[in-house]
Amino acid sequence: MRSLRYNVAVSLDGYIAPHDGSTDWITPDPSIDFDALWAEFDTFIMGRKSYEDIKGTEVEERLLRHPASNVLIVSKTLIPEENPGVTIVSGDFLFAIRRQKEKEGSDLWLFGGGELFGACLDAGLVDTAEVAIMPTLLRGGVKLSTETGDGGSRAGQKLELQRVEKLEGSGILMCVYQVVYPAS
C-alpha cells in the first residue's frame, strides 16, 4: 500500500502559512533537491485553500506538468470545469484518499493544509509527517494541524522520529516522523 506523507514547511512556532497565504517566509536552501523529492510522488492531495494559494504560481505549474501527476483537491465549492487538470473531490474525501492509497504507484503527498491533515490523521490515513522546520517565527496563521471540529481529534497523537537533518547553509531542520496509531 502506498504511503500518505504530509510533507510541509513549518515555522518554528508551528505555522504552515501566515494569514495571507504568502510563502516568502520559507527559507530557501539550494541543497534541497526538489526534483528528487517530487519524483517520489505521483499523487498530490490538498485542500481548497492551499490550492487557491498556489494557483497561478510555479508550484501549480509544476504539479500540472508532473509526468505522472494526479492532483486531488478537496473542496465543496470549487467547480471542476473551472479547474482543469485537477480532480475536485467534493464528497467523502477520506474514502477517496483510502482508494488512492490502495492503488499501485508512488507515494501520495498530502500538500496541505492543517485542517485536511487533521482529518486524515484522525482517520488513520497519514503514514508520515515530514516537516521542514524553518528558522522563522510567523506568530500567527495556519497551524500545522487543526482540530477537525467533529470531536474526533486525537489529542496527543504519537509520532516516532525516523530521521532529522540540519541543513547547514540555512538552518532548516528536515524531520521525518512515523505516525504511531494505537493498536485496534
Rank of each mutant, 00 (worst) to 15 (best):
S3H: 12
N7P: 00
G14Y: 06
G14D: 07
Y15Q: 09
D20K: 02
G21N: 03
S22A: 09
D24K: 07
D29V: 00
P30Q: 14
P30A: 15
L37I: 14
A39Q: 12
E40R: 12
Y51L: 03
G56E: 10
T57R: 08
R65N: 13
A68C: 00
A68L: 07
S69G: 15
S69I: 04
N70M: 12
S75H: 10
E81W: 03
E82I: 01
N83M: 11
I88W: 08
I88H: 05
L94Q: 07
F95P: 00
A96G: 05
I97V: 13
R98T: 06
E102W: 00
S106A: 14
D107V: 08
L108V: 07
G114F: 09
L116Y: 08
A119C: 10
V126H: 01
T128F: 12
A129R: 03
E130A: 12
V131W: 06
I133K: 01
L138P: 04
G140L: 05
S145K: 05
T146D: 13
G149I: 12
G149C: 14
D150P: 02
D150M: 10
G152I: 02
A155F: 06
A155K: 03
G156T: 09
E160R: 14
V164S: 15
K166T: 15
G169I: 09
I172Q: 05
L173Q: 10
C175H: 12
Y177P: 04
Q178Y: 09
V179G: 03
A183G: 05
